[in-house]
């Protein structure tokens, strides 16, 4: 894929991919690395890839890169999320910090659908297509994820 299309895609989707990677790693720096690597790998793809397939491909690639990182030896040398937050917390608001910790407590299968639907603004149908899920499955994940998030958030706030 030529650099102009990759750059345009980066402008449009970089934050979405960054958040998806962050959901899996819990580390901002690692998420940034995964994001950059995902876009670099996008350059290897043929120009025939359509625009609507770019974001699903980027999310899948970022997810795989994050999993590779979690399996790697480098992961064992990084600091846990709590220590990281304590060292340089980007969220001044305590409730926001609790909400993010609550999201990280959710099973992985809930995180990405919730991000795409609630944060990025995709409809349930679009979310299902982006993640290659059935519509009912995506809706069910969102409904249950919201309940679990509420419960986890309240526990974090105590």
């Amino acid at each position: 894929m030529n650099q102009e299309r990759v750059a345009a895609s980066f402008q449009a989707n970089a934050d979405t991919v960054l958040r998806a990677a962050w959901h899996l790693t819990g580390d901002r720096g690692i998420a940034e690395d995964c994001t950059q690597e995902a876009f670099l790998r996008l350059m290897q793809q043929p120009d025939s890839m359509t625009d609507e397939h770019i974001l699903p491909w980027l999310l899948r690639t970022a997810k795989n890169l994050a999993k590779d990182y979690l399996r790697s030896a480098e992961h064992s040398r990084t600091v846990p999320l709590e220590e990281h937050d304590a060292a340089g917390d980007p969220f001044a608001d305590a409730s926001a910090r609790a909400a993010l910790r609550a999201v990280m407590r959710l099973p992985e299968k809930y995180r990405l659908p919730m991000q795409l639907h609630f944060v990025e603004g995709y409809t349930i149908d679009e979310t299902a297509r982006l993640l290659h899920l059935r519509l009912n499955t995506a809706a069910s994940l969102l409904r249950r994820g919201r309940k679990l998030l509420q419960k986890a958030y309240e526990e974090e706030m105590i």
Binding site: F91, A96, A99, Q150
Partner: peptide, 18 residues
């Protein structure tokens, strides 16, 4: 009761590239 989802959305949107 605070809606966790709203807090989450607001917090999540802070995660972005500078």
């Amino acid at each position: 009761k605070t809606d966790a989802l709203e807090v989450y959305i607001r917090a999540e949107k802070q995660i972005r590239l500078t």
